[in-house]
Design a protein around this nucleic acid. Sequence first.
DNA 1: GTACAGATTGAG
DNA 2: TCAATCTGTACT
Length: 204
Amino acid sequence: MGSGTADRAFFLLQSRSVARLLLGMTIFCTSQGTVRGGVIIETESYPGPQDKASHAYQGKRTARNQAEFLIGGHIYIYLVYGMYWQCNISTGKEGWPSCVLIRAINPTVGHDTRLSNRERIQLTNGPGKVCRWLGLSGEQYGYDITKGKEIWIQTGKGELARRINRTPRINIDYAGREWASRPLRYLLEDYQSFLAKPKSKWYK
DNA sequence: GTACAGATTGAG
DNA sequence: TCAATCTGTACT
């Protein structure tokens, strides 16, 4: 398989497809002159305005969430709990609020090689940690990652033929039974032991 | 204006 | 189990 940069056509796919396909790809970020990157090992899909967990439920648009409405391939990043950034990538067509949350990566570029596998992954095994390690914050709000200078995604799989599992999304209990239980969280099975445990069941 | 919850994390 | 810390929203 060729190893290119994820382009507009890729991010025009529906968020569920993007969430699944991103697993095994590598996200890169240049921050303060340093390039860091890691294999994406956990994502969540926020498929659209019908989703009660979405910040854009029923089409609600605010200053904070407007990047979620951009055409697929833009950074939608926001602060939760007053201190942690969450990095999402918009998906689908312009005006349709949907995105994929990057929840965990395995650092492969720009990391401290003295760390054990476990120590390294534990630096980036949650959405707030991913942003902290990659150097992502509000400064990158709305950035177009298909332009590929500062933030980009390499499509060639950094990890080949790994099994993908699904679970309900994490910490969205407020979204009602149907949406809170829908298996829209995707992860690579090999990393499951490092990642957040779902309250309910696993899906193959 | 005040109150409060939230797509989290790390300490106790 | 719980506090840190800020934004959007629902109230008074």
